[in-house]
């Protein structure tokens, strides 16, 4: 995975594209722990889930922090609450 990211960064640098991080597809599975990231996009076709995440305050512009990684689940902090989300959902939260 790290290789893919590195590869993308190289590619982006070469082509000098603007939407760097969107193309890099950086999501909550690839971020540093304990560091708040600004959410760029919720990348899912499941509109209900998007709406639900919104009600929790998990939407573009808000911050999300990964607290710990447990097996295939991620404990994240959004607003003032802790949630456990699975890898698929963590991948859908682009930062």
């Amino acid at each position: 995975m790290e290789l893919t990211v590195a590869h993308n960064i190289c590619k982006n640098n070469l082509s000098g594209t603007r939407e760097e991080s969107v193309k890099q597809n950086l999501n909550l599975t690839g971020v540093e722990i304990n560091y708040p990231y600004k959410i760029k996009e919720i990348d899912t076709e499941d509109d209900n889930m998007k709406e639900f995440l919104f009600a929790l305050g998990c939407y573009e512009g808000e911050k999300a922090t990964v607290i710990s990684i447990l097996a295939e689940n991620y404990v994240i902090n959004v607003k003032d609450a802790r949630y456990s989300i699975n890898e698929e959902l963590a991948k859908a939260i682009l930062v």
């Binding site: 899912t44 499941d46 995440l53 689940n73 609450a81 949630y83 456990s84 989300i85 699975n86 698929e88």
Partner: peptide
């Protein structure tokens, strides 16, 4: 299909 899981701790 994608299966999302979210639960408040």
């Amino acid at each position: 299909s994608k299966s999302y899981f979210i639960m408040e701790l």
